[in-house]
Design a binder for these strands. Structure first.
Lengths: 336, 336
DNA sequence: TTGTACGCGTTATCAA
DNA sequence: TTGATAACGCGTACAA
């Protein structure tokens, strides 16, 4: 019931181990007769080479770890999907795992990657600079490509130009006459949040205005949190006239909170989300979003890693990908 | 720059290979002094055991292949996610891959699973009975748990009770007075399609009516196809008064097609989708859907596989999971 | 209780 | 061109 080994094939074909191996890795100098016999034996036994033994022998597993927050988030899924396709094309196999943005889980999974001897890792870390996480990444001792995390040390990474996106979106609302624009995004200290804040502030500065600090909420990307945040914001007496949701998964909660409060988009409040989606396109009204191309970023991340694996001495690269505002009907000038 | 091996640890701790191994697998009878020395050496060298070598030695990789159509589909992602959590808890590592419902790709990935010596596979195959796919599954020679595919041979599988869901949904519409109810679902011959057809027909039969065969479209689950199908259906002179979308990813296309035609849900046409989602809950109007719990099914699939790996002799199990209609505002009685 | 030696399935080196 | 053999990193009988 056990799988046949190269030995069984050799025995059956009445040739030596080496010959079978040579046929398998189609070496040029092998007698056609032997090649034929071996081919037959392989077919007869339904032999499949053992990748484990192979990688033991040549010291490379041909595997790459891919770690994201949660595969159930469609944008992250398409990021992972693009990576998978790119890696498979290059003869590598991705090992995909979800950290839930949880530090301990992330460390545990990196440990798993280390045990399984991944040749590289592409990851969306819970933090750019948490020392434990930085340490866990270093312990891997293989190339790491970070997504949307800007590390102090020189490292390969692929980034989204959130700053630009937020600047554009905020300027768009300011141009309409909005003065009280809320920004709801993730925790401080993490790259996307930092960049979004910068873009938001830059737009205000350019307009010669000052944002109300009370309208900037940087708590967490978790749905329950951002949902509650929106509910709070719109419950205030001096509620914002517009809200920008700076988080990929936060639009449904915002729409629902607004709906529950009995407010109407865009009449009572303007809304901008992040990442194009079925919901944003087909909601009533369709929602303006800041979009970026997760697939392109995934492909780039994979290529970056493959190049780095091929040439560990290469200078680290930092690639930034553009954002694009998709204008729809969820924003109009504020009352009066 | 190479990773240290158990040998390096032994050398540094000035003990034998065997002792290190015994410490690693914490055997009871090992001198605390040695244990301590080894622990220190491991920490000093930042040693991590090589899972590859381990699995070579004990003939088990601790890995399970997980194959789905496309991880970007949120319901499939949560299915995979649940499997991942369950497997990791049990000490197994999932190797996740997407087939795009493409036969060749599915076969190639099963081959990859075989090479990497997966101890079992959970999969959503492109077909129940295509001989090539059946063959590829058999070639694995490890336990396979199928999702939503009912195979002739006895096999472990987890199924969704699509028949029941469709019967309920169809009866609901018939009860409202609809007579021309369209059913748009996947290709014939595959379990979910078969079951949906059966449920749909059963509801008509119970009501003493006959469905118009022209309203039953079984082409493909692909978005472009179902979208075009809906567009065709509603362009007809005798268009249906209600449509049931029997496919997890087909709701956005249907809503959009209806919108483009200038029809209004539910005034002009009633609509029922599959699987609860942001879109169905927050669309205008919210859309009635047939729902089932992908996470529960994923967990069950993982458990089934784990049990089967532990005991290959166990009788094959077939678990069926319930569907539930979530009633919303997308259905009203037809005109006149 | 600890150390030694073999074997897991490959590939690569060497001699024939 | 082919066959024999060592080595990859580990676990485990077996001997000490």
């Amino acid at each position: 019931m056990e799988r046949p080994t190269i030995k069984d094939v050799a025995r059956r074909a009445k040739v030596s181990l080496g010959s079978v191996s040579r046929v398998l890795n189609n070496f040029p100098d092998v007698n056609p007769a032997i090649r034929k016999k071996v081919g037959k034996a392989i077919a007869d036994l339904d032999y499949t080479p053992n990748a484990m033994a192979r990688s033991m022998r040549n010291g490379a597993t041909g595997m790459v770890g891919v770690l994201v927050r949660n595969i159930v988030i469609p944008s992250l899924a398409s990021f992972v999907r693009a990576i998978q396709d790119e890696l498979l094309d290059a003869g590598y196999v991705p090992l995909i795992a979800c950290s839930d943005n949880h530090k301990d889980r992330e460390i545990a999974l990196l440990g798993l990657f280390a045990q399984r001897r991944m040749e590289g890792v592409i990851m969306l870390s819970a933090s750019d600079r948490d020392p434990d996480l930085v340490g866990a990444r270093a312990d891997l001792s293989v190339p790491v490509v970070l997504f949307d995390r800007a590390v102090p040390e020189d490292r390969d990474c692929v980034l989204v130009d959130h700053r630009r996106g937020l600047q554009e979106a905020t300027a768009y609302l300011l141009g309409m006459g909005h003065k009280r624009i809320a920004l709801v995004t993730g925790p401080r200290g993490v790259y996307p949040t930092t960049e979004r804040l910068a873009g938001y502030r830059a737009a205000y500065a350019t307009a010669g205005l000052r944002p109300d600090p009370g309208l900037i909420v940087t708590r967490s990307f978790e749905d329950e949190v951002t949902r509650a945040t929106v509910a709070e914001l719109i419950a205030r007496k001096d509620r914002p006239t517009a809200i920008i949701m700076g988080g990929t998964t936060t639009l449904p909660g915002a729409i629902e909170a607004i709906k529950q409060k009995g407010l109407v988009i865009p009449k009572d409040i303007s809304l901008i989300g992040a990442i194009n989606s079925d919901l944003s396109a087909l909601a009533n009204p369709p929602v303006t979003v800041i979009h970026w191309d997760y697939e392109a970023i995934g492909r780039a991340a994979a290529q970056l890693l493959l190049q780095r694996i091929a040439n560990p001495q290469r200078a680290p690269q930092r690639q930034t990908f553009p954002t694009q505002v998709i204008f729809r009907e969820s924003c109009i000038p504020p009352h009066r």
